[in-house]
Design a protein around this nucleic acid. Structure first.
Lengths: 211, 211, 211, 211
DNA sequence: GATGAATGAGCTTTCATTCAT
DNA sequence: GATGAATGAAAGCTCATTCAT
């Protein structure tokens, strides 16, 4: 008879895979993919090396599973989707706050992705092509709806949208990871509000005074 | 008597170290620190493995030297320094363009830094503390001079300044490295101008410069 | 009370052992002993790894059982026994044909024995001592009866008999396994007849049977 | 300066490769290719694992080099070439003796080839196609020259030639390796002479007495 | 100074074997 | 009886580092 009942088997198996993936993500974020041995992953997951290989056929496969499971990017689309009914101002503020929260909740993955991005430039390109580009288009379309095509001739909504994401990400990295908050104390609402407000006025331009 | 005068010898020694550091930076940016062997670095530098170890006692020491030599961050201060006499608008545009050019010229280092940042979080923190924070203060002070303390109560100049840098960096990464330009064609002036303009209107808020 | 009568249980047990041994023989002949995992043997036998170990305590024990069960050599005696009533010429032809057929029917075992013979040289020696040597004596005695002791002083009947077996085996190996038949097409009757005829004339020497 | 003078370098390198190949051949013949670790080969060659990999890039490459270096088969052609001027009888006796001596001098290789033949059936097929088949043709042509096409219609010279080789090989294996000589004492000249004589009369058939 | 042959620790991965269920 | 998850020793192979020349 098996160690766990047949009905529980799949749940157990998936649970193990999740534990391993989480352990791997944590260690890789700390020490890097190459520099972290499978033995270390196994130990962190509380199993033996051999057992680890029952759940993932290779280190590369484990990496791929981790990246698939915890992919940051698909959620960018979700973030924009949730803001449908709001005013432009609220939508921008909401998006920035949601993005920040999302980054906070996926600290390890941000680190891992950052680290492995240059090594997996092809994978990164694919991700960019299939996820970032459509998401960017979505944001640009939204901006055009809100701000008019005329403003779109002055600034690139594509650039503006991607710039907003960049602003959030780098502020998150410096604040949370590098501990810049210790030296330049700004709290989280102040950050997200400033980002949103600067972006808002920025993209709207001198619209009302321009006339 | 030595074959070459002491000063020549030092120059030769430093030249070698530079050649090695440059070769290492190039290879590491391409393939990653862990995945690049010292043999490959030696070959790229045109010397033998044994000779490489005459100039750097270990792989780790070579990494530290490379990061020390080619640190991106000190130059942020230079960038701001050059914009002293300009109008606020020209200064922002100039800063963004200069930053973009700087990133282009240090593509390899950007990749390496990105990759090794999470592993060297203490070093990164030190860099942040000694370089980013003062630079950020510099920019914030400049913004306050230009826009007035009143506006500073509405938005955080610290956040705005750091956000500007983030915008530039992430746009550079997506555009140059991920080939996003292939799918969403925007040329470089359009990018830097949009960043500058959005930032300008964004930080100014409802309209007029203090002047 | 046991679920099945003791005799049935034994029959079941032996049946299982046979299934496993046959599966192992097949896989080992294909891929080699070392390169074939116990998991593969278990799967081929339609049981689990754990169950496999209920029937054989180790991989080595399974190998020993397979070699014991399917030993080729005892059958050489059978082959000679069946030719009792025939004329010398028919006996030789019959023996060669029977040996060839026997090899064809035990292709897997020939491959395995070939492969494992050098590793189990002691076992091979035992087999030689207890089986090959008596069989060889049998053939030599038969040849002496047919050809006379005088001819036996010219050639060694021991050598001749063993040579005949060697001829058959190597021709079988090259023909069936190496696909030599593709390049030098000779069909099976032509082979066995030539072997038998060459041997016949060869051992008879200058001409006539003793008769 | 290198450890060995540049002029000696190649000789040293080749010497090492030879030492390693010999050690590998010996161990593989004893214990089999799969079951012999590279560590064991290195130790037998008196070097470290790492050094072994300086001379051969992989275990497979070492096997290929060993098989290439010590290939038995090309020499079959040599064996036949040396017998050009002799009478048919002397040629056959000479061939058998030379083949036997050749096998004696390459005991380890015979064992290794025997063992790895089933695993490397493709390589074995290539060897058969390129070496055995031409050699076999050579022998058959020679037999036809000596014995006439008429005899060739009665027996297959191809089969006869290959059968001769098989006889020698199997007698060698049983005699030298299995120690059959201990139980059925026949000395080497008796063996080779009997093989040659049986073959001679065999292929000639009742030719001269038949008419 | 310069070299590269030599080393061995350490990596990923496999697999015979065990044992709780 | 039967199972297969779990183990860990051991394999092939890489590479940072050393050192005799």
């Amino acid at each position: 008879m098996p160690k766990v009942a047949a009905s529980e088997r799949d749940a157990f198996y998936e649970g193990r895979r999740t534990e391993i993936a989480e352990a791997a993500l944590r260690l890789w974020a700390e020490g890097g993919f190459d520099a972290t041995s499978m033995a270390a992953v196994a130990e962190a997951a509380g199993i033996s090396k051999g057992t680890l290989y029952l759940y993932f056929p290779s280190k590369q496969a484990l990496l791929e599973e981790v990246l698939r499971r915890y992919s940051l990017l698909p959620n960018i689309q979700n973030l924009t989707a949730n803001l449908a009914g709001l005013s432009f101002e609220d939508a921008v503020h909401g998006f920035v706050r949601a993005a920040w929260r999302h980054l906070s909740e996926h600290r390890d993955l941000v680190l891992l992705a950052l680290r492995e991005l240059p090594s997996n430039i092809d994978r990164a390109r694919q991700a960019a092509e299939h996820i970032l580009v459509p998401a960017n288009r979505l944001i640009a379309t939204y901006l055009e709806q809100q701000l008019g095509a005329e403003r779109g001739r002055e600034i690139s909504f594509i650039v503006a949208g991607r710039g907003l994401i960049g602003t959030v990400i780098l502020l998150f990295l410096t604040q949370e990871m590098l501990g810049a908050g210790r030296f330049l104390p700004v709290d989280e609402p102040q950050i997200t509000d400033t980002i949103a407000q600067v972006f808002l006025h920025g993209v709207m331009g001198s619209g009302e005074t321009k006339g």
